[in-house]
């Protein structure tokens, strides 16, 4: 079974569910809140592979999980949306479950951004520069911080609230790049990639050299993005503008259906993992198992 996690499906998430249904693939959609009201048990016993069990509400029979896909708009699967509770202890406890799932080999696409690396443009861009890309504002070195903050805000609002559209994003960056170049999107899907360029008539196919593609994929690897998109600006050299660890092929791809089909074909081939899913009742939110008196704020050994 393919698990989709979203409080509200993104446009490409909707397309994906339709394509999965058409291919006869079992899939289920749970919100992050529902996910955290399930019973979980992950067991480590040396010499035996780690196994996990989740008792999920609204499940009719037992399944093995093949993959987990974050299918919300950008930012919605962030830590901040954890059941409306902002308690660091509670939040970190749940994050540790996600980290174990990642460790035990369950394929996760668009995972919850555990460490905020998706928003750490400075780190991403530094890595891109090491690989030979130009980056906006890098000649000013640390003024990159200021530029990055503006980008971060624009990107964040774009994906969380759709305050601005993709064209506006490009216009925002256009102030920082020389005139006459071409906006290029590279979508990555595991080992495959798809390149499109933005034109006034919409997206069209585009060709990038093997070296450039290799380096784009290396940056996406750096942010552990198996499914993602990089935005480039190509003039006589290539600028690495930004990347996101999720698919946005409906926005800027000339033939989004072919990318989606490739993704679904990939999902269909995924084997069962050690994460088993069983029907279970929703847990009623309660207090904490480890009370605050067992969680001293006073300094102690770590």
């Amino acid at each position: 079974m393919i698990i989709l996690i979203a409080d509200r499906l993104s446009p490409w998430g909707h397309g994906l569910t339709r394509a999965l249904t058409a291919r006869g693939v079992d899939w289920g959609l749970w919100s992050l809140k529902e996910w955290m009201r399930s019973a979980w048990c992950i067991t480590l016993n040396e010499g035996i592979p780690v196994r996990a069990r989740a008792d999920l509400m609204r499940l009719d029979s037992a399944h093995a999980c093949c993959a987990i896909i974050g299918a919300c708009p950008w930012g919605q699967v962030g830590i901040a949306s954890f059941d409306g509770r902002d308690d660091a202890y509670y939040r970190h406890a749940w994050m540790s479950v996600w980290m174990v799932i990642q460790t035990m080999g369950v394929p996760m696409f668009n995972p919850i951004d555990l460490n905020g690396v998706g928003l750490q443009w400075q780190g991403v861009l530094t890595h891109a520069v090491r690989l030979g890309f130009l980056c906006v504002g890098l000649d000013m070195r640390f003024s990159l911080c200021a530029a990055a903050r503006a980008f971060e805000r624009a990107w964040f609002y774009f994906y969380t609230q759709h305050h601005i559209d993709f064209e506006t994003i490009l216009r925002l960056w256009a102030h920082h790049v020389p005139q006459g170049g071409q906006w290029v999107c590279v979508h990555r899907l595991e080992d495959r990639y798809y390149v499109s360029a933005q034109t006034t008539q919409g997206p069209v196919w585009y060709h990038l050299s093997r070296d450039v593609i290799h380096n784009v994929l290396a940056v996406l690897d750096h942010v552990q993005s198996r499914l993602g998109m990089a935005l480039l600006y190509v003039l006589d050299q290539v600028y690495f503008i930004a990347c996101t660890p999720r698919g946005h092929w409906h926005l800027c791809w000339a033939d989004d259906r072919s990318v989606q089909n490739a993704f679904v074909s990939h999902l269909v081939q995924l084997p069962d993992t050690a994460l088993s899913l069983y029907p279970g009742p929703a847990q009623v939110p309660r207090g904490l198992t480890i009370p605050s008196e067992f969680r001293p704020i006073i300094s102690c050994v770590m």
Binding site: W40, C41, T43, L44, A93, G280, I290, R295
Partner: peptide, 30 residues
């Protein structure tokens, strides 16, 4: 180095027998 048998769980009964419990993350707990 041996690794102790460990269970990370929520919504389930704790294991019975001589077990200890602690915070699942790097947050401090006794």
């Amino acid at each position: 180095l041996r690794v102790p048998e460990s269970v990370l769980s929520v919504g389930c009964m704790p294991p019975s027998g001589d077990w200890v419990f602690k915070s699942a993350s790097n947050q401090r707990s006794v």
